[in-house]
């Protein structure tokens, strides 16, 4: 898998997103502080935003090419997108959320069946529930399952663990690793957590104010840190 971004430009509120990079890891982290343009970059790859110039290619096929006025609509890209906090459809049941993008006529590689996805994400018991009764972690697993069942060629995850507390993040991380190992769908993983980059990703792009400032393997760009931590006595 490779996502090629050639001289892609997109004006944002305070700066311009300006990226020229080839992302070809199994799981590529897009790392940076909030407001660095990470989400905009995902939306651009998903086709939800159009750059003012440049070219976006997935495995050699142009998705967006400003020069030739090519713009493949988001629904034809087979690029899955899990936005922050999942964005489940509140008016649909959990089952109908999961099946929203599921097309039984389409060929599904690598065991991407409803049952298998439900088993990997351990969401079988949630299927009968209403969306409003799910916890934050459950919602994220459903959103992930919903994206997987639409058989994407590429999966975009926007800080899937950001809204959750630390113990819950620890519990959800293995699910993401299982999705990575089980289905072989390449992922772009937006995060501002170095721990998640090291735990999950094999490639990382560092984004600051709309520009790539570093690109490499997590081991090259991150080192173990001991931050001063306090805890309650007794």
């Amino acid at each position: 898998m490779s996502v090629e971004l050639r001289n892609v430009r997109l004006p944002l509120a305070h700066f311009e997103l300006e990226v020229d990079a080839t992302l070809d890891g199994r799981v590529t982290a897009i790392f940076g502080s909030s407001g660095a343009g990470k989400t905009s970059l995902l939306e651009l790859i998903a086709g939800l935003r159009r750059p003012t110039s440049g070219l976006v290619r997935l495995d050699g096929t142009p998705l967006t090419d400003v020069a030739t006025r090519t713009h493949v609509a988001p629904e034809r890209r087979a690029v899955g997108y899990v936005p922050q906090e999942g964005a489940l459809f509140p008016h649909l049941s959990v089952r109908r959320n999961l099946l929203y993008g599921f097309d039984p006529r389409r060929a599904r590689p690598g065991g991407l069946s409803f049952e298998h996805v439900a088993e990997i994400l351990e969401i079988g018991a949630l299927v009968g529930r209403a969306v409003g009764t799910l916890s934050g972690g459950e919602k994220q697993r459903i959103a992930l399952g919903r994206a997987l069942l639409a058989t994407p060629r590429l999966l975009l995850l926007d800080e899937p663990l950001a809204g959750l507390d630390a113990p819950l993040r620890e519990r959800l991380l293995p699910y993401l690793a299982r999705v990575r190992d089980e289905f072989g769908i390449p992922m772009l993983y937006v995060t501002h957590s170095p721990d998640e980059v090291v735990a999950l990703c094999d490639s990382v792009v560092v984004l600051a104010r709309g520009r790539v400032t570093a690109h490499g393997r997590p081991a090259e760009l991150f080192q173990p840190a001991t931050t001063p931590r306090y805890e309650l006595k007794g």
């Binding site: 998903a46 629904e75 899955g80």
Partner: peptide, 22 residues
Amino acid sequence: SPRLENVARTLGAGPWRVFATV
């Protein structure tokens, strides 16, 4: 929320289906 409409698009729904179902 436009986010919900955007997610529906990435799940393969065209503009009319997004309008009708979301």
